[in-house]
């Protein structure tokens, strides 16, 4: 596989099939941790870390353990196991090295475990890449995960910046807070529809 394949995979996963705005995965942290752009970026970094490593490990486990033994049906449990452990690890690392970030992420940090975007990418890699390339698609899977995670970070950062501006703008009372944010999210999603069909 050449580099163009990887570049296309990243571009496609990041912008065209954006996890949040196109596949509607990972909405919980998208709404929960987007009040401040600093914590949004922190969340993006944590998700990136977990997503990339989880994709690598789950792809390896799937192709070298589950398939040879013919037990592909336990993939969901096995993947969740890997993801949960990685999130624990991230939590410990953040607690040790970045207390303020740990605090601002709060309950949303352990909730990355149940962030459907991560399991979604791991399972999507299996159904889209493994079925076509077998175990040699590993790197493609990792790059897809990287692109997805970058897309997640980009969107959550953009959204949080808009929300910060909204804080100080004159919004009708009934629309203050979450309602106007949801409208913004909807408009962003429509805007990203414009990228359909580029590739």
């Amino acid at each position: 596989m050449t580099w163009t394949v990887f570049a296309v995979a990243i571009f496609n996963a990041m912008l065209i099939n954006n996890v949040i705005l196109k596949q509607f995965l990972g909405i919980c942290p998208f709404l929960g941790v987007s009040k401040k752009s600093s914590s949004a970026v922190g969340m993006g970094a944590a998700v990136t870390f977990v997503m990339v490593i989880a994709s690598f490990v789950t792809y390896a486990i799937y192709s070298y353990v589950l398939v040879p033994y013919g037990i592909e049906y336990i993939s969901t449990i096995a993947f969740i196991l890997v993801i949960a452990s990685l999130v624990q690890l991230v939590e410990m690392i953040l607690k040790k090295f970045s207390k303020p970030l740990y605090k601002s992420l709060g309950i949303y940090l352990p909730l990355i475990t149940t962030n459907c975007a991560i399991l979604g990418v791991a399972e999507g890699n299996i159904s889209n890449i493994y079925t076509n390339y077998g175990s040699s698609g590993m790197w493609l899977a990792v790059f897809t995960a990287l692109g997805t995670a970058l897309g997640f970070t980009l969107i959550i950062f953009a959204f949080s910046s808009v929300r910060e501006k909204l804080e100080s703008s004159n919004v009708p009372d009934a629309w203050k807070g979450v309602p106007i944010s949801l409208v913004v999210a909807g408009i962003m999603s429509i805007a990203f529809l414009g990228l359909q069909g580029i590739l």
Binding site: I61, V65, Y69, I71, I74, A78, L81, V82, S85
Partner: peptide, 15 residues
């Protein structure tokens, strides 16, 4: 037995 051992082994390693 195979799935039990695979999952158990993974759990043990990760733990």
């Amino acid at each position: 037995i195979v799935p039990l051992f695979v999952l158990g082994g993974m759990g043990l390693l990760l733990g």
